[in-house]
Design a protein around this nucleic acid. Structure first.
Length: 131
DNA sequence: GTTGAGCGTT
């Protein structure tokens, strides 16, 4: 009669905290802001001027159309600090800019530039995409 | 002279 303490389910529910990256934020991008709702006449300098008022803007990138060359109406703003980005987002999100409501939110980490390393034989047959 | 939801190249 020995009670074999057979632990049915180990209480080690504690997941292995092996990948403990720094504090997790509620957003994938920390100081990366996605700004949309911009007027088609807004440029990076205007955006930077408007956002640099909340903190130090490290980078401002507005996407333009490659077919016509006009602005797509959305861009990205990088802050040196996440505190400034959050303030700017909370401050400029929903506000009007140049007569249009601004939509600011954290940007997604889409940038993962991979060098053109020939993954497998890249026969050099590069598709010449003219347009 | 236009249009209006959205997540991007070096």
């Amino acid at each position: 009669m020995r009670k074999v303490s057979l632990i049915p389910f180990a209480r080690e529910v504690i997941k292995s905290s092996s990948s403990q990256c720094r504090s997790f934020s509620s957003s994938p991008s920390n100081n990366k802001l996605f700004v949309a709702g911009l007027s088609w006449s807004v440029d990076e300098k205007s955006l930077k001027e408007a956002f640099s008022s909340f903190g130090e803007v490290s980078e401002v990138r507005i996407m333009y159309d490659r077919d016509s060359g006009r602005s797509r109406g959305f861009g990205f703003v990088n802050f040196s600090r996440e505190d400034e980005a959050s303030s700017a987002k909370d401050a400029m999100d929903g506000k009007a800019f140049l007569g249009r409501p601004l939509k600011v939110s954290f940007a997604l980490d889409k940038v993962q530039r991979e060098p053109l390393t020939t993954r497998h034989s890249n026969r050099g047959a590069t598709f010449s995409r003219s347009r």
